[in-house]
Design a binder for these strands. Structure first.
Lengths: 333, 333
DNA sequence: CTGAAAGCGCTTACAG
DNA sequence: CTGAAAGCGCTTACAG
């Protein structure tokens, strides 16, 4: 029965002090080259694996970053996580992940665990419940422990921490305006649980041309009959969908009922996954750059940890991108 | 500037020994009720948070489970992760996540980090590269350190560890047979990078009725022209798609070209996400139960850790489920 | 260049 | 019921 090899054991087998072993393994210039080699060879032979718990206890940091996301089932967040994980891996850091499922309670429990683990920083997309209730003591707690926080995509105005967002509101406005230029006269917004801020861009755009806004609420299922009626009455010729999922649902419904996209109805959505790309017609979309957001969140977190950032909070606003594909008509010039 | 409160500080402020404080906080029956309360009140007041690194150093375990998955972008794996995370959270454990992106190298690096962190167990869906190359030293290493491993969905026959799988092969066979009973005479299999084992079920089913198998390879893009030709020639009336993504791509293509589902072509796929469910027509599918697999993986891991399982490896084969919706014709009885 | 010693923050026999 | 002491596995001044 093999136990994990420790410095003590190596020390015994090599007849060297623990200090020397430790220094040799860490490439300390104090130690002679010969000794370093001897130690390393022995360590490899004995399958020595350093104990991070011990190292961290001394160092006071854990090499671990806490990640709290609402869910992984939403492609936006899984992509964001992929960006975060890759950036963290590159820096030799580890990702400790908790999912809040939009619940304040679960978020709190996760953060508690994270603090106990001595995380070096936190990247979080706060739960809806947190945002709405403005209960942020579990987060301010981190601030007082000097654990930096970066919010991703969703901002918490009540707390002073760095944040990553996109200019999605502006891009929504431009996208709507593009649809109008392409001939759309009746654009509705298909809204789900997400996308509260997205509505704003839509409203802004319609307001600027003096048009009435029409928002159709959508929760797991949307009012098909109503939509079908509008299609038949030709009282709709454009849809901005709050998510790709929602867009695909609507588009399949439209196609299935014999209407054409974009001839009868233009459809644009948010997020850019391969599924929207490979749909027929290929889905026009506003790419929210989740991976880049994740990457930038990590970058910002480390800049903050390393004291490279001025005090006060910083907001990085990433450019989102309108990707024009076949589900919207080309702009008439 | 607030530092984290330690037992030592509480000890000073209360004029009690560190031992007493520690025991009180852990509800040791040795300590008087009055003291326990006093200590707890003071701890709360000082925002005391236990240091897990220290605790784990003593205990020799970390309360952390390593999770290594190929990706989060594939809905199967993000769902599996949701199942794992919830089960772990319920038990007060933490998830340390690494993504392999199907690369042996990345998988190795992740596992290395995980071992250094003293994880108590590992749940892994091995990378394709690992499976193909049969390089498993990074995993056998864990075995020799008595860190239990459970594989999820993808099995590694070369290593003696517990595994979770489904009966997808059998269900594929049944699903194909159902399609035949519903009148399909020319069923093709649309195959991607995943789904090697899935082909087997398809082949098995066609072989059993003496039909020729037709497999169309699919990588990010499939041969549209070829498919269109088959549709026009009516030489195809059923498709088994290796993934939901693939199914949606094909279905939108079929609808877009004026054919009907399932009247002209039946389509069945794997995995069961809300997107397939809300598609028109709703996608028939073989549900691979990723969340349940994740859940069961955690359960098995803890049973193994707690010595509840007999020595030798155990394979849990979960029932996958054929979900008949509108993209396949009803079975004629 | 090598080693003895202290200490990171906790837990847990052991003594009183 | 409370406390002194040892120790988990490491790192790092300090001494030699």
């Amino acid at each position: 029965m093999q136990r994990k090899t420790t410095l003590k054991e190596l020390s015994k087998s090599l007849n060297l002090s623990i200090s020397t072993i430790s220094k040799a393994l860490n490439n300390s210039p104090e130690i002679s080259k010969a000794t370093v080699e001897k130690v390393k060879r022995s360590a490899a032979l004995h399958n020595y694996i350093p104990n991070f718990a011990a190292r961290n206890l001394k160092a006071g940091n854990s090499g671990t970053i806490g990640i709290v996301l609402p869910t992984m089932s939403n492609p936006f967040f899984s992509s964001a996580f992929e960006g975060i994980e890759a950036a963290l891996m590159k820096r030799g850091y580890k990702s400790l992940v908790f999912l809040s499922h939009e619940s304040l309670d679960l978020e709190r429990t996760g953060i508690q665990k994270l603090v106990e683990t001595q995380i070096d920083g936190l990247i979080i997309s706060p739960a809806h419940e947190t945002i709405n209730s403005k209960s942020i003591q579990h987060l301010t707690q981190l601030k007082s422990l000097h654990i930096p926080i970066v919010t991703l995509d969703r901002t918490l105005h009540e707390i002073a921490c760095d944040s990553i967002t996109t200019d999605e509101e502006l891009k929504a406005e431009i996208a709507i305006s593009n649809m109008q230029k392409s001939g759309c006269k009746n654009i509705i917004f298909l809204s789900g649980t997400i996308g509260a801020t997205r509505k704003t861009g839509y409203k802004q755009a319609l307001k600027s041309v003096g048009q009435v806004t029409r928002i159709m609420e959508y929760h797991s299922d949307f009012p098909k009959d109503e939509l079908l009626e509008m299609l038949l009455a030709k009282s709709i010729d454009g849809i901005m969908a709050c998510s790709e999922h929602c867009a695909i649902q609507v588009m399949s419904f439209i196609l299935q009922n014999g209407f054409s996209i974009p001839q009868d109805v233009s459809v644009i959505s948010y997020h850019n996954s391969s599924i929207g790309q490979s749909f027929w017609p290929a889905l026009s979309t506003i790419d929210l750059k989740p991976e880049e957001q994740g990457n930038l969140a990590v970058q910002t977190l480390f800049d903050r940890i390393n004291g490279l950032l001025p005090s006060g909070k910083i907001n990085y606003q990433l450019d989102s991108e309108i990707i024009q594909r076949s589900s919207t008509k080309p702009i008439r010039s």
